[in-house]
Amino acid sequence: MNLLRGESLSVNRQGRPILTAVDITLKCGEMLGLIGPNGAGKSTLLRLLAGVIEADEGILSLEDNPVSAITHRERARRIAYLPQLSEIAWPMSVERLVELGRIPHLDPWQHPGPQDRAIIERVIARTDLQPFRRRAFNTLSGGEQARVVLARALVTEPNILLADEPVSALDPAHQLDVMTLLSEHCQAGQSVIVVLHDLSLAAHYCHRLQLLHQGATLAVGSAEAVLTPGNLKTAYAIAINQTAEETLSPFRLPWRRLS
């Protein structure tokens, strides 16, 4: 069964096509990498899947039901969305912010119960936020902030996690940490769509890649099938260095995390 399925999705803004007839599918336990140059429509596609914007054309279905038939709350329980920039309006504590991720599961004014608490504690431990839990969000470093907003999305326990460049502001070690967290989310039978600019990271962690170019899908499939010299040239206007090709595969990460 397809967890998420979009057919010929199109979005126009002020008469200009942003996305044209994009198909996308996501299976259970899958990590799909959305790649493509700036302005290719990756973020628009993600926002569309998150329900933040609506498609001008095309059909989007969640677990084989049309999204239009699902309430905001139900969708919010199943899909969590992590935007590129997280602007937090108030200097709330890490703990409180993470707790807000449970809201889709709570009635108005209902406080998180013991079960919610257990989930929150587990996620705080997994994202290494224990030392910062009482600190205000605005006093944290960029890497810590990225982990807080990721934790907020994880406590929702969504079937689908949509992450827009979650590692772009992070150092290599924290990049690996975040990608590992996303992989673990998939291993639990849930799925992730992640927008990435780092092709090596994308090739290493994602089960499948979808390459967007000028609002349309240029290629979709395994890293080897998508990151061909021809596709890289068309989409990014780059070529892989000969030396890199000989010494190490461009699809393999040149480093690993030390514990």
């Binding site: 933040v52 935007p83 997280s86 309006a89 912010l97 809201i103 004014w109």
Partner: peptide
Amino acid sequence: WRQGRALDLLTFGEETAASMGAD
């Protein structure tokens, strides 16, 4: 009354709040 949760969600910005179920 009962709009408190949606206001909490707005802490994350309008788009994230919408994705978290706020109308």
